[in-house]
Design a protein around this nucleic acid. Structure first.
Ligand SMILES: [Zn+2]
Ligand SMILES: [Zn+2]
Ligand SMILES: [Zn+2]
Ligand SMILES: [Zn+2]
Lengths: 126, 126
DNA sequence: TATTAATTGCAACTTTGTTGCGTTATATAA
DNA sequence: TTATATAACGCAACAAAGTTGCAATTAATA
């Protein structure tokens, strides 16, 4: 594996994630970066952060791609957690503790699950 | 609502869905159509078929958009069913009978669920 | 401070999907 | 069968999202 370096742009991206409680799209990040770097660079930084397990990629119900910080609680990286997509504010939040149970024919070999709930988030339903 | 007409292109698209057991992307459908109509027309036909509840749209884990026939079994249209995405052959199949159960904080108002399992399909795991 | 490779900017390109508009074809009624 | 209204179509143009190649820059470390 390549050694990843700490650059001005990468630090700026990490700070943006640090200030956000919801998932962010490339476009949203790019706007917040405010000319710090080229959009291609932002794509590459996001790729590196995913490889380093610092963020994860989420595909929203409408196909929109977003990114969110990974939480490595209890020294265990929780993969495959559920997400909530608000139909009103369009924010995506990680639901680290929601784990669906299900039954599927044995002929399918399940390796990964993707569970996204949609509706109104706490902020929008009150 | 508008009245939808039966056209040559629409009939061709329906036949393609009739011959497929898995979900199809716009590009795959367009190839199979073999010059029957313009790609814009195919997009519009797919939109109409969705509005008429004849097909449904599926967003794969990687963001790829596909379409699959709706099965109206028992006179009831099963919405929100699960899907299986094969990491090997990249086929998406509807899992009409897989229904996840889960627990989520009451502060979220869930209206819709999206459940996609991935791994190896029966064909690819044998 | 010098070196090496990771990172960046920029231009160009691809893929996917949308929109406007003049033309064509379908369904229905005379 | 023919006339008519409008759904559907083709085409060109556009937009958003993401990728690639390459030369220039910069971070890490020796
Ligand atoms: Zn909301
Ligand atoms: Zn998450
Ligand atoms: Zn398969
Ligand atoms: Zn389905």
């Amino acid at each position: 594996m390549k050694i990843t370096r700490n650059t001005v742009a990468k630090t700026a991206v990490l700070e943006i994630f640090g200030n956000s409680t919801t998932a962010l799209s490339h476009t949203e990040i790019q706007k917040q970066l405010n000319e710090v770097c080229d959009r291609v660079t932002t794509y590459r930084i996001l790729d590196r952060l995913i490889q380093d397990d610092i963020i994860h990629k989420i595909v929203d119900l409408d196909g929109t791609v977003k990114y969110a910080k990974c939480r490595h609680e209890h020294r265990v990286h929780i993969h495959n957690h559920a997400h909530f997509s608000c139909e009103n504010c369009h924010e995506i939040t990680c639901l680290e503790n929601v784990k669906p149970s299900y039954l599927i024919p044995h002929s399918y070999k399940v390796k990964d699950i993707n569970f996204t709930l949609s509706g109104l988030c706490p902020k929008c339903s009150s």
